Computed example of a mutant assay.
Amino acid sequence: MRPKVTRAALLREFGAPLELAEVPLPDELPPGSAIVRVRTTTLCGTDAHLWQGAMPFVALPIVLGHEMVGEIVALGPYAGQDALGAPVEIGSRVVWSESVCGHCHGCAVLREPVLCANRGYGFSQRADRWPFVIGGLSEYAYLPPGAHRVVVADDMPDTWAASAGCAVKTVVRAFANAGGVDPGATVVVQGSGPLGLVATALARAGGAGQVITLGGPSGRLRMATAFGADTIIDVTAVTDSDERVAMVEELTGARGADLVIDVAGGPTVNREGVLMCAQRGTHVVVGLAGPGAAAVPMDVVMSRELRVVGSLNGDVGDLVRALRLLTGLADRFAWDALFSDPVGLADADSALKDMATMAAVKAVVDPRMEIS
């Protein structure tokens, strides 16, 4: 018998402790939908920002978490296949993309699900309204019809599969939007969080001749070196943005970088990224600049014939490629180093704090840990 309620960690007030509570699950399952038992949720920096109140327009209460893997416990009609045509049945272990509507301009005309006007992130779903829970800090979650799911290979760790749902697929899409890495190219990665570390690894695996990673703190930068960075720049030590630009200029023989990927965000990051680009270079914007962003020098964009490319998260295709990337590069990069030891729902607060303070690269919550 499928569950009617689920235990979840609710965010009722920004900055306040999460509240463990029982939340309803949908009584009926529409065609294409499912209920999953969440096995693992890996936290994203966005989860910490939401918790801290950096996105006050989000309506509360909500269940945080949008990187998760789970087992199917109930299926609606016509929900028996994944995005690749593999069978989905009770007990199948799956990951899934954010739900998309299929009929807006982004979906139907542009054929870009990532641009869906009605895209269903976990933090867009109030926990006091139907369908209540699509976030990962919950024992069970509703999988909407438009959330394309992928059956996970038996030998893939839960943490890897969960992180593919946002962090890894976002990086995969960013490199695809950039046009990939030319052999021997110089790549600058702005950021040493989860996305920055994966981007560093992908740049190295993609054939870059030189990889420069900027970020902090020092522990993450040491990991960036292990993931393929030739040079690291600690932004907590080199606090002047112009000095960071000068360092990249020196490291590249005054030519600049062929590809600069912003996976950090911050007021000066895009200005720096453009100034770090070589002639005909590409700057990919993934991070949010936030308020008070420094002006991007458009004269430099023009005179160097730069490409400035936006890249937003990823769709189910990027998710599939992310899973393949993790498996294909498992012998080159220690993916497990990204993840902290798992905690249960009762300790989700501490996991969020670890993300907010950068004590963890990817905090992990296993909602099954406190279930007897």
Rank of each mutant, 00 (worst) to 15 (best):
A208G: 01
G76M: 04
D47M: 05
V343P: 12
L50D: 05
C44L: 08
V198A: 04
T213K: 00
L319M: 07
A167K: 03
V308Q: 01
A208F: 00
Q125I: 13
S192T: 11
P87Q: 10
A254Q: 13
G136L: 08
S138H: 04
A108R: 14
R220S: 07
F132C: 08
S192C: 11
D182A: 15
L326P: 09
T357R: 08
S192N: 07
G191S: 09
V301I: 13
L110V: 10
L64I: 09
A108L: 15
S138K: 00
D47A: 03
F14K: 05
P61K: 00
D182T: 15
G281C: 12
F339Q: 06
V88G: 06
P194S: 14
L325V: 15
V38Q: 04
E89W: 01
C104D: 13
L143I: 06
V171I: 13
G228I: 07
G310W: 00
N118T: 07
T236H: 12
G191K: 06
G281F: 11
H105Y: 15
I72H: 04
R37N: 06
V114F: 10
L195G: 05
A79R: 02
R271H: 10
E19M: 05
Q190K: 03
A176E: 15
V69I: 09
V286M: 06
G146N: 01
A74M: 07
P217Y: 01
C104L: 11
G219H: 12
T327Q: 14
E71T: 08
V263A: 14
R304H: 13
R244K: 06
V23K: 02
I35K: 02
G76E: 04
A334T: 13
V263R: 00
R222E: 14
V151E: 04
E249K: 10
S124T: 15
T282S: 15
L64G: 02
Q210C: 02
A74L: 05
D349C: 11
D182W: 13
G266Y: 03
D336S: 15
V286D: 08
G184C: 09
